[in-house]
Design a protein around this nucleic acid. Structure first.
Lengths: 138, 138
DNA sequence: CGGTTAAATAACCTATAGGTTAAATACGGC
DNA sequence: GCCGTATTTAACCTATAGGTTATTTAACCG
């Protein structure tokens, strides 16, 4: 398993079985047995997949008698979304509009502070190095 | 390499070197040489990484004399974001508010159509079923 | 043409991901 | 305490991801 959390999360998501498991869990918490049912695969295999998902922070597991119910864990999803946010401007038009608006506002702010406004740059590009607290929606 | 596009994209993103390359490319198109510079790694290794990224639809490459400039390709990012969207309600509060609002509107719409409104479900959960093809070997 | 720079390919090595079967563990019920 | 059900662990196998060095292709330059 990878050292950094983002790598293990992406690696976990890179398997169709695991993504299908997550899709099932989006419907609600359930047992390993039920999760395994749709797949033509041994239980230990599913068990391993779940361990990978848990390690990646994509699911968490409870304990209820002999069952270990799994549910979606938000953390890792959030991190992925945050990382993706650094690239949103490359495909999301509405994001670009919003971004432009925000820049407009910042410029106005600056104009109020300085009588002599600084030159407006065409488009400020910034990519923080990997750590990025990320731009969440809203 | 994986059969389905989403898997290869996530797999491509599961490597810190490749994510760093993407971060660099977010600043703008550039050559393989410049992309390789920050890494303590041979050029063929970088070349392979780029091939993976290209295959995943995360970058595209041009041709300019002996250089093969790389740039971000939106498609794969978009797909990842789309998939992630199925889980957004698990972590994004503002999304939940928006979702609630939309449901409200739909309900109003329905109320206009039928004099007798259908029972309001608590929370409509929908998860598109993933392609889930392949699954070679057992 | 021959030399130089940019990048990709080939051949190879090693660690590990994803699957298997068989055995072990955890818990509830009688 | 023993049995059945749910789940994990152990031991193993095979394909492949990610790196290496050496070689090849492609384009420009004088």
């Amino acid at each position: 398993m990878q050292p950094d959390p983002l790598s293990s999360t992406f690696a976990a998501l890179a398997d169709p079985t695991r993504r299908a498991i997550l899709a099932r869990l989006a419907l609600g918490e359930t047992s390993v047995m039920e999760l395994a049912a749709p797949f033509d695969m041994s239980l230990p295999a599913i068990s391993k997949h779940l361990k990978v998902l848990e390690h990646a922070g994509l699911i968490s597991r409870g304990r209820e008698a002999q069952w270990r119910p799994c549910r979606i864990a938000p953390v890792a999803f959030k991190e992925v979304d945050g990382w993706l946010g650094n690239f949103r401007r490359f495909w999301d038009e509405s994001f670009n509009r919003l971004d432009g608006l925000l820049e407009e506002m910042k410029a106005d702010e600056a104009a109020k502070a300085n009588t002599k406004a600084p030159p407006r740059s065409k488009r400020k590009v910034r990519v923080k190095k990997e750590k990025q607290g990320g731009r969440t929606r809203g």
